[in-house]
């Protein structure tokens, strides 16, 4: 009995010591809220496998860009890609980590999920406040089988600046000249109609509480909260449902290779099944690393996630990056991320 206790104590002590030895490395990141669930899931699995910890603060894309510029974190994360010029100025390198879809959701009595059809221009006119009622001829024309109520449309948008809004307004800018003229594409805009909810959860809460409302959220939120999603007409003219396969279809035609800084926007892409409001989430790192060992740890984690994290991503309704893009990203790491003396941190492929 006593012997066993001693043995247990010894084992525990040894384990604790091993824990201390492992706990040395913590990598830090900050930024976008949209990929936070998958980053934390990856971090947990990576921690189990290697003992390296990730401290990721989901403070928003704008905050992530600010923090990486101030060099307070090892990497920043943003849903809106930085332009090549801005990257150059700040000495940053940018690459895509994960993709996902933004989905319009509605609260209309008697209309099941996926049954309401909208086109880009109609969606833009609703958000411009030009289409005010659900039985408007423009909506009725594309929904011949549905009985639409005469209720006023309650438009819901994000109140806070957000990468989700950036993707959504990017799409509206592409499909509606009026939207491009009057409102534009940004993480926060001057909304001509409706009310604002804070975060995806705020928009989801408003839409589920207000009859006759329409909002837009990340796909995972719509799915987990069983919200009524909308079928959208895409670039090729087909009506497609928001599914992971259709987000993937939107990413297929993207020219990652020929675009400096991976400034690829996945909205309104060609392709028969392409979901029109798709976007990628990006990682930002400094080109010149003060601590090459720390930077190598970050790259090891990201690489591990590219290689081992796809199933976890799909479980959470994200779309993993295609293998060809991952190869490109690794080349970028080898070419552009250097130590203080110019030494390579990630070995070339």
């Amino acid at each position: 009995m006593r012997k066993q206790t001693v043995l247990t104590l010894l084992t525990t002590g040894a384990l604790a010591l091993a824990g201390v030895a492992y706990a040395g490395t913590t990598i830090t990141g900050a930024g976008a809220t949209f990929p936070y669930p998958i980053y934390s899931k990856w971090a947990h699995a990576y921690n189990q496998a290697t003992g390296v910890k990730l401290n990721y603060q989901s403070i928003g894309s704008g905050g992530g860009v600010k923090q990486i510029k101030a060099n307070t974190v090892d990497f920043g994360a943003s849903d809106a890609p930085l332009k090549a010029k801005d990257l150059q100025q700040a000495g940053l390198v940018q690459f895509p980590m994960i993709m996902g879809g933004v989905v319009p959701v509605v609260n209309l009595l008697g209309i099941p999920s996926g049954k309401l059809r909208l086109t880009g221009p109609v969606l833009a006119d609703i958000y411009l406040g030009k289409i005010k009622r659900w039985n408007d001829p423009a909506i009725a024309k594309i929904n011949p089988g549905l009985t639409l109520p005469a209720a006023e449309i309650a438009v819901v948008h994000r109140a806070d600046g957000s990468g989700t809004t950036w993707i959504f307004t990017n799409y509206l800018t592409k499909v509606s000249p009026a939207w491009a003229d009057e409102i534009g594409n940004a993480k926060a805009v001057q909304w001509p109609a409706g009310m604002g909810g804070k975060g995806n959860e705020g928009v989801a809460a408003f839409v589920s509480k207000v009859n006759g409302s329409i909002g837009y959220v990340e796909y995972a939120y719509a799915k987990q909260n069983h919200m009524t999603v909308v079928t959208m007409q895409n670039h090729d003219g087909t009506f497609v449902a928001p599914t992971a396969a259709n987000f993937q279809a939107a990413a297929e035609g993207a020219d990652w290779k020929g675009t400096p800084g991976y400034y690829v926007v996945l909205t309104d892409q060609p392709g028969k099944n392409a979901w029109p409001i798709t976007g990628a989430s990006f990682i930002l790192m400094h080109k010149k690393q003060r601590g090459p060992a720390q930077a190598a740890e970050v790259l090891k984690f990201l690489n591990w996630s590219y290689v081992n994290g796809n199933q976890a991503a799909m479980d959470l309704d994200y779309v993993p990056m295609p293998a060809s893009v991952v190869t490109l990203v690794r080349q970028t790491w080898a070419d552009e991320i250097k130590g203080a003396g110019g030494e390579t941190i990630w070995p070339a492929n």
Binding site: G60, G62, G63, A159, D160, K187, A188
Partner: peptide, 12 residues
């Protein structure tokens, strides 16, 4: 106050 709470973090 609500404008500040909503927009401060993401104001670039």
């Amino acid at each position: 106050a609500s404008t500040l709470a909503n927009e401060f973090t993401e104001a670039d």
